[in-house]
Amino acid sequence: MVDEKTGVVFSRYGLSFFRRRLSFVLDKLLVKKKQQFVELLDDPQFVDRFCYNMSVPVAELFRDPAYWRLMKKIIPQRYSDKINVWFPDISSGEELYGLLIILSQLGLLDKAAINVQHSSQAGLDAIASGIVTPKMDEINRSNFERTQMTGSFDDYFAKSDFDCKINADLMRNVTFEKKWFLNDVSETKYDLIFFRNNSLLFGKELQDDVFAFLHTRLNANGLLSIGIKDSLPASAKTLYALLNADEQVYMKN
């Protein structure tokens, strides 16, 4: 029933993750009883907030600075013309903002077309707002330094008493789509797909399908980034060539 109402196949997520996350999200959304939950699944606004929270909207800017340092080298080596980028199942904005800052520093921002998808409008709105939580300010600034970016964090973010927001102009080439990525039947292909830490949520069989699907959406020699502790399933080993083992960057075979 949850799959049907949300359009997301939560039934194929990791069982222990799903149970744990469901309990956390229902508690957060003040849902006390199963029957109440069943009824709320008919409310599109509840479903949207449910999908947003199930997506684990937790991140930090430039998480794994070594990965971003690598991307800073790889991107200009491989792409000098148009770059098609996909964030198929992004859970919060930080991964996107990190890429935008790097593309800006490389002078490639206007050569990039970036598509961001999320299963909920609340998720898309949060990402499009450009806001990073002030609670993460120290970590975000530290990661910015560790990524060895030129300039300062404050060149890219405006900080007020209430929030910290990325310069909106950096998002000029980003399009947002409310869609769960496996329901995307378009045939658009991408040069870079960012899928870091996303597959941690999935069961093994769903992982098999997801990595096969992402392969079909990469251009020849396109790159797939997964989290440094994600596992590429055995079924996908022939689909991708390892470009960097430490940072888990793969190239389409």
Partner: peptide
Amino acid sequence: TISLSIEE
């Protein structure tokens, strides 16, 4: 098996 997560 072991599973990992970046939850809160």
